[in-house]
């Protein structure tokens, strides 16, 4: 077994697996899709049958009426993100996928909280709202409804703080995101 005649020797041991499979962080995928019936079903179905868990999902129009944007977050510790994006790309109606870099991305979520707040607790709830720049949008004798916008982490933090007062209900939209600067998301 002689030495190979090539001067440019490559040791097979040096070869490494291309691409990172599991990143261990939260990923925000911004997906541009054709605005056609059934597209969301295709995406949801794909996630279900491949065993990927969607953490949040938000769908809405874009500047182009033929195209919708789906913003989807998922956990890169549980899923190989490159598999998720490659499988998504196979859907004919999916035009573009961006796995947004956290430091170059603005993300926001809207949440509504209905919190138990009678005379004794209301002032304290209002104080927390002020710190979070949350808006009280409805008040009754025994409860308030608060609107909060911010990153997912901020909304989580708000939830933790108001939970002890008695959280009657809450609704969250899931994050939407856009890239910073001039470039397209």
């Amino acid at each position: 077994m002689g030495e190979p005649a090539t001067k440019d020797v490559l040791s097979l041991d040096e070869l490494e697996v291309a691409g990172q499979l599991r990143t261990g962080r939260k990923h925000i995928l911004s997906i541009l899709v054709e605005n056609k019936p059934g597209v969301l079903t295709r995406i949801a179905g794909l996630f279900a049958r491949r065993g990927f868990n969607i953490d949040t999902l938000a769908v809405g129009p874009t500047a182009d009426e033929k195209i919708s944007r789906i913003t989807l977050t998922l956990d890169g510790a549980k899923h190989p993100i490159d598999q998720v994006t490659k499988q998504l790309h196979k859907l004919v109606n999916v035009i573009k996928i961006r796995d947004l870099e956290p430091q170059d991305t603005l993300s926001r979520e809207l949440a509504l909280f209905k919190i138990s707040a009678d005379d004794s607790g209301r002032a304290e709830v209002m104080q927390i709202c002020e710190i979070f720049r949350a808006k009280i949008v409805d008040v009754s004798r025994r409860s308030v409804v608060v609107e909060v916008t911010g990153t997912c982490d901020k909304v989580d933090a708000f939830e933790r703080l108001v939970r002890p007062f008695g959280l009657v209900e809450m609704g969250r939209t899931g994050e939407i995101a856009i890239a910073r600067g001039r470039g397209e998301t």
Binding site: L15, E16, V17, A18, G19, L21, P80, D82, Q83, K86, Q87, H89, K90
Partner: peptide, 15 residues
């Protein structure tokens, strides 16, 4: 030809 097959079951060193 299908990028989703790369590293699906066995990690590829040279895809």
């Amino acid at each position: 030809i299908d990028p989703a097959e790369i590293s699906k079951n066995v990690p590829a060193h040279i895809p």
